[in-house]
Every structure is written in C-alpha cells, then in structure tokens.
Amino acid sequence: MNLSLGPLTYCWSKQATFEYYEAVASTDIDTVYLGEVICSRRRELKYKDYLELANLLTNQGKKVILSTLTLIESASELIELKRIVTNGEFAIEANDMAAVNFATEAAIPFVAGPNLNLYNRASLDIMHKKGMTRFIMPYELSKFWLQQVLAGNPTAFETEVLGYGYIPLAHSARCFTAKHHQKPKLDCQIICQQYPKGILTQTQESQPLLRLNGIQTQSAAKINLINQMSAMSAMGVSYFRISPSGLEDIALIEHISNAQMAEQSNLSLEGNIKDCNGYWHAEPGMNLNLNTIT
C-alpha cells in the first residue's frame, strides 16, 4: 500500500507551506495532493506557487495531484477551478461535481474526493465511466462498507482511505474563525492564519470535540488507522492518506514507510486528546475502539 499526503487544510504562510513541502519532498511518500480546498479568500499561495511546489515534488519522484475547492459559490471560483482542472500536466482531485463536470467535458481523468457523496458501488461505477481513476472513501464510512463495495471487483479503480490526521467533518458558508473574532467573513483579514491547526473547541466538561478551520469544521482528535494498514491492503485499498498537520508529519511518514515499524505502531492513548478510529469500525467517528489494537 502506498502513502499519500492529502491537501493542506489550514492557512499557513507561504514560507511555512514551502518549508513543509520541501521537507515532504525528502521523504519516501508516493503521492502528494496540493491546493486550496477550503476557502478562496486564502491567497497566501497562488496557482503558480502550487505549480512550483508540484514541480519541486515531481523532481523528487513524487506523484502530484492538484486538489480543488470543496464549496464553490461564485463565478470567479469556477474560473479558478477550470484553470486547475485543465492545467495539462497534473492529475486532479475533484471535491465538487463542478470539477467532475469540467474534467468530463475535457476528457480528463480525475480522483473523486471525499465529498462527492459516493455511497455505493453503482455510484462509483458511474463516476468510473466518467473518468474516475481513484476515490477517497467518504470519511464517515467503515471497513464493512468498503469490503462490500470492493467485493468481486476490487481493482476497477483505486481506493484511498484517510488513515491519519484530523477529519474534515463539515463546510459552511459561515467562517467560524472570523465569527470567533467577531469579524464578518468579507473582512476576515485571513484571521485563520493565526491557527495552524484550527481552533480547538471543547465541551463545557473540557472534552475536546471540534477544530474550527475557517468555513470547515474538523474533528478535535486525529483519526489513526496505522494498525489497520495490513487489513486495508488485504481489502484492496491502494493509498493510505495522511492529512497534513505540521512538520511532525515528516517523522510520521518515515515511520509508516517502514512497514514493519508501522505494524507495531500504537495509537496515542495518552494526553488530552486521544486518537479516534470509530468510523472505520462502524461506530461514532469520535470513538476509539481498543479491541482492534493488535
């Protein structure tokens, strides 16, 4: 099974983003997704910067896929989307049917992102006919769902599963980071840049629950399916996705790249925020199922 690095969901400075991907380039990771998937108001990195990063990573032997915006509301966002889809060099991850539309029009193959709501085999087969080469399993689905969907014909298209990192849970018109700072979205001053891992949100009993990242809401806990990698591989999953959270990812990538070490990996059970793995085991996503630790 290959490792992939999902798109960066946070708004980091251009410098921090370049430093991160320069470090990524030195790892053994197979595939890197690049692009702004959350908010078109974030302009730290522009299209040409992403292409520069893409070339930097490609030169180091990585496969690069350009990710596209998840919530598309305006004509200008569609123009930018079309530019990315028709870039002519790199594959794309479609995170909205608008991207699928542009890709099919131009007969360009695409990776179906986690928010296209492909919840059964028939839907995946329709997308496959339209040019889908791979799909990212919707986050809330389980290994049982995947087994059933891949049964009989696991190789028609590739499957990727989010295996490590904070889980994107929702997208809104409202920017929760700006709201927290009593700013309207139109004058947000890109306040989300102050939160490189989002705003940790806890219940009134100090239970970490969510992470507010601009218009996106994420899980407070990281999903951790490292100890499920051989099971995934046996089911026909071809990519294990890590969602970027910081330079600490680099050590993690190297650790998981060493398959034997990965098998011995333990879940993080200590500290304030425990990992979670509920979705994979068909439980509430926030759950940590300890019975499956091998």
Binding site: L71, L169, T217, Y279
Partner: peptide, 17 residues
Amino acid sequence: IMAEGRCQLSSYVTGQS
C-alpha cells in the same frame, strides 16, 4: 448551517448522519 449532504458532525458524535 453546513453545506447539506457534506456534514458529518452527527455521525462523528452518534454514528448516524
């Protein structure tokens, strides 16, 4: 308040969306 159909807040906490 979320883009409907793309919200997993309920299943994150309860397992059902």
